[in-house]
Write a protein that binds this DNA or RNA. Sequence first.
DNA 1: TTTATGGTATACAAATTCGTATGACTTGGC
DNA 2: GCCAAGTCATACGAATTTGTATACCATAAA
Lengths: 304, 304
Amino acid sequence: MTWHSVHFDWNHLRAFLVTAEEGTLSAAAKALNSTQPTLSRQVCALEAELKVSLFERVGQRLVLTKSGLELLEHARIMGNAALDFALTATGQSQQIEGTVIVSAGELTATYILPKIIAKLRRLEPGIEIEVVVTNEPSDLKRREADIAIRSFHPKQPDLIAKKIGEEVIWLYASPDYLNQLAEISDYSQLENVHIIGFDQTSSVADILNQQGWNLSQQNFPVITPFQLLQLELCKEGLGLIFFPEQMGDPEPKLERAFEHMGPIMTLPVWLVCHQELRTSLRVRRVFDFIASEMQEIYKSPDQV
Amino acid sequence: MTWHSVHFDWNHLRAFLVTAEEGTLSAAAKALNSTQPTLSRQVCALEAELKVSLFERVGQRLVLTKSGLELLEHARIMGNAALDFALTATGQSQQIEGTVIVSAGELTATYILPKIIAKLRRLEPGIEIEVVVTNEPSDLKRREADIAIRSFHPKQPDLIAKKIGEEVIWLYASPDYLNQLAEISDYSQLENVHIIGFDQTSSVADILNQQGWNLSQQNFPVITPFQLLQLELCKEGLGLIFFPEQMGDPEPKLERAFEHMGPIMTLPVWLVCHQELRTSLRVRRVFDFIASEMQEIYKSPDQV
DNA sequence: TTTATGGTATACAAATTCGTATGACTTGGC
DNA sequence: GCCAAGTCATACGAATTTGTATACCATAAA
């Protein structure tokens, strides 16, 4: 086997890849925990090694040349291979010390995780936990997170998922606001009800309308995707919110609305992790611990 | 896009890959134009970065651990991507200066290439030619060569091939030896003829036996795959050799044997090159030049 | 036009990496 | 059993790469 063609500096290729993906040298430097001059030199060096002009320096902006665009495709393949390599490497690491990244939504991160993490840290002081709070599903493959808590089963076959339980969603409101709605028992009468929505899409309205409500955009005077703000607004009596019973019931200033009509919906709770990472002592420890602790919580919600 | 998991040193991964493939650090160092201590440190550094033990140091030999074996597969993918990257990069290089590697068999290298290379060097002083002389087909994909002269059409679809002509193979012998064989016209009488063979396999005998000869191992007292040695042995009168007429006819001390029976066989001559490289100014120039020069030669063999 | 912002390339000192030399060790052959 | 050959790891000076600071340029807004 000859390695003739592999003599160029692979780090320079990485510099090229990240620069091309990020758009600027400065951004690439930030992404790689490096500095802009370093990236600048590395890309230049790669161009010299290959005798190919990768970027065209037009003004302050770098724009890929035709050759650069073609080469970027191969560089991407290499980057993905590096990603896979890093992933299985983390999985192969048999040492318990290190960081585990957990991705969760705002509510889970706020109400569920703190006690679990505290308990885990007491049991395993060598494991450091990094929590990524996002309502978007993190890309486990790219290792934006090692473990994710999600409300849906992942499609990818290389992910493993464990079902923790069901999150029961009710409508909640402050006692004040509930008084204003008193006596109402028929959904169709709720023309002027206020609900604090997530975004401009009508998905929340759709769910309720399917259950007999008759809601339009006017029923959503305040909108925010930040659920903790929804909660505070609700406490102030600005309207109803969707909230899981595990988090909503313990809130002193919150009461279930229309309880006799039953819960709005239930969402499953999945704990997800990449297959490769299950072989890691560290990740497995955290995964199993979170799973057992959360299962305990979802069995008896009042413990939250 | 996050580059979280790509922070490890890609050159260290390359060091791991080449070391694993080559078997020892020293061999890997040679392959990478580096030194053994450097490779040693890089592999150690990678192990530290990943917190994974890649090799087990048993005695002086490095043997892959289970983790190392698993990671090697991903590293191989990355290596192949690097290969592809380098390949198209060379193709993208629009600079005429640089080295072009030509692979040829002994006879072509000795009789055909020198004049062509000399002429080319006069026309294109910026192009340096490296000739790889081997009877094995070079791996164009791994860039053991940029251009190869072969006697068969390549199967791989990503290679492009141009047919130069036909090599007509005769049996040749020294005048001395021919006199010993005088008067013989029937192949079946040639029980004691001596032929200088290539190797222990009976492929040469098979070819002749199919044409009515009756040869056994005894007819091949001297064997060598080195064709120039065959030639010299033939000149010394040790026996017959297979030789192309383009090279054999001009030899003063050589004559065709059994000419009236026609040539033994004809071999096509193909000029082969990787598709990606055709886009390189430099490689294309050499390819086209060799093609036209060789076609000229194979039209009128006496010019050799 | 002017100014503020965000970008790249260059200069030089500091930190890192590399190559040479060397030592300790294992394997294979005589 | 011993010697020769070949392996990997370590030490230290040299070479390379990196980061900080800075200059310079382009664009957008005032």
